[in-house]
Computed example of a mutant assay.
Amino acid sequence: MSTASIRFHPEGPGGAGLEDWGALPAEALESGEGRQRGRYFFQDERLGLSAGVWDCTPFVGRMGPHGNNELMLLLEGEVTIEPEAGEAVTVRAGEAFYLPKGLRVRWRQPGRVRKYFVIFDGPADAPAPATVPPLRIDPAAALAPSTPPAADTLFGPVPSQQGKAAFIDATGQFTIGVWETTPYHRRPVPFPRYELMHVLDGGVTVRGADGTAESYGPGDTFFVARGMVGDFEVRQGLRKIYAIFIEKPAA
């Protein structure tokens, strides 16, 4: 196991299995029982930031308003999200979507659903979105050039990188999007942010300062916490969906 990254597994950390998280509150349900199971891969209550795996039996329920900002990667099943104002969106296994804090929706899942998630609670007074965003992440979204890492942080040449943010929360701390890079090899440094990464194409090897390493390819999901020390090596390019949290100092 790498000390510089946290690999996600559908059965929780190390594949050890999921815990019983109980049923959804009866007042939130229109039909079904909504029996939940899950495990956390990362949780920081001070930041209001968590990442994990969740599954649940069929149910129809209302989220009004949704209590946090959340990126979800659907592993099994399908979900239809029906905003109070806006078109319904159906998401199936293999797709990614998000819900902003404050959005009022009906959630319909006809069968069992399993997902990876990363959640940022956000402040209690965060405003609801003025309009309904697209919700589903487009993995083939057109990207724009982004700033590459500085040459002195790399082994070898500076890569070409580009990305596109699909969502930024009201505080500007939590961002979801798609990003890609040409090959590069970054020197071991403390990671400057919290980030979930889901590999779409290509791959990356993350090595810890103690020599442990994890290699991630298409379909793999992992998390890197701020301060983890490791080097990133992308040999044949990388395209990913990401969720980034960068804490802003209190005013």
Score class of each variant (00 low, 15 high):
Asp125Arg: 07
Ala142Cys: 04
Asp231Cys: 13
Arg92Tyr: 07
Tyr216Asn: 06
Tyr116Leu: 14
Val206Ile: 15
Pro100Ser: 10
Cys56Tyr: 04
Pro83Glu: 05
Lys115Arg: 14
Ala151Gly: 01
Ala250Glu: 13
Thr90Pro: 03
Glu87Asn: 10
Leu238His: 11
Ala130Ser: 15
Lys164Ala: 15
Leu74Thr: 11
Gly156Cys: 14
Leu196Arg: 01
Pro192Tyr: 02
Tyr216Trp: 04
Leu135Tyr: 01
Pro133Asp: 00
Met228Trp: 08
Glu214Met: 12
Gly17Phe: 13
Glu76Cys: 11
Trp54Ile: 02
Glu78Pro: 02
Ile246Val: 15
Glu27Gly: 08
Arg114Ala: 04
Thr171Gly: 07
Pro139Thr: 03
Glu84His: 01
Ala16Ser: 13
Gly230Tyr: 09
Phe155Tyr: 14
Ala165Lys: 04
Gly163Asn: 10
Gly163Leu: 09
Thr212Tyr: 05
Leu135Gly: 02
Phe223Ala: 04
Tyr242Pro: 00
Arg106Leu: 09
Val204Trp: 03
Arg39Met: 08
Val113Gln: 03
Pro65Tyr: 10
Gly122Pro: 06
Ser31Glu: 00
Ser215Pro: 01
Gly203Thr: 03
Ala126Val: 07
Tyr40Cys: 11
Gly67Glu: 09
Leu238Asp: 09
Ala250Gly: 12
Ala51Glu: 01
Ala151Thr: 03
Val79Ser: 00
